[in-house]
Amino acid sequence: MIEARLFAYRLLDALREDDPFWDLTSAIVPNEEGEACLKTKEDCVLAGVEEVVELLKLLGLGYRVVKGDGETAKAGECFLYIRGPKPDLLKVERVVLNLLMRASGIATATRRILEAARAANPRVKVAATRKTTPFLRYIEKKAVAIGGGDPHRFSLSDAVLIKDNHIKAVGGLERALELARKTAPFTAKIEVEVENVADAIKAAELGADIIMLDNMRPEEVAEVDRRLRERGLRERVVLEASGGIREDNAADYAKYVDVISVGALTHSVKAVDMSMELL
Rank of each mutant, 00 (worst) to 15 (best):
I2Y: 13
I2R: 13
E3Q: 12
E3G: 06
A4N: 12
A8Q: 00
R10G: 02
L11K: 07
A14E: 15
L15W: 04
D19M: 07
P20S: 13
F21V: 14
L24M: 11
T25L: 11
S26G: 10
V29W: 07
P30W: 13
P30F: 12
E32F: 05
L38P: 00
T40G: 13
E42H: 07
C44T: 11
L46G: 04
V49H: 03
E51A: 12
V53F: 10
E54L: 00
E54H: 00
E54T: 03
E54C: 07
L55Q: 11
Y63N: 01
R64W: 01
V66T: 14
K67Y: 06
D69C: 02
A75S: 15
E77S: 06
I82D: 03
I82M: 14
R83V: 00
K86L: 15
K86C: 10
D88K: 12
L89V: 03
L89D: 07
L90M: 15
L90R: 14
L90V: 11
E93T: 11
V95Q: 00
V95A: 08
L99H: 14
L99A: 05
L100F: 08
S104A: 09
S104M: 11
S104F: 07
T108L: 08
A119R: 15
P122I: 08
P122E: 15
A128D: 07
T132C: 01
T132H: 03
T133G: 09
P134Y: 06
F135Y: 12
R137L: 01
R137H: 04
I139R: 00
E140A: 10
K142A: 08
K142P: 04
I146Y: 10
G149Y: 05
D150W: 15
D150S: 14
P151S: 10
H152D: 09
S155D: 09
S155Q: 09
L156W: 05
V160G: 12
H166M: 14
K168N: 14
K168A: 15
A169I: 12
V170H: 02
E174R: 15
E174C: 05
R175H: 02
A176F: 04
E178P: 03
R181M: 05
K182S: 07
K182E: 15
K182M: 12
I190W: 02
V192A: 03
E195C: 01
E195Q: 13
V197M: 01
I201L: 15
L206H: 00
I211T: 02
M212V: 09
L213K: 08
D214W: 11
M216G: 12
M216Q: 14
E220Y: 11
A222T: 05
D225H: 14
R226V: 02
R226S: 08
E235M: 07
A241G: 12
D248R: 11
N249A: 07
A250C: 10
A251F: 08
D252V: 00
D258N: 13
A264M: 06
L265W: 00
D273G: 03
M274Q: 06
M274C: 10
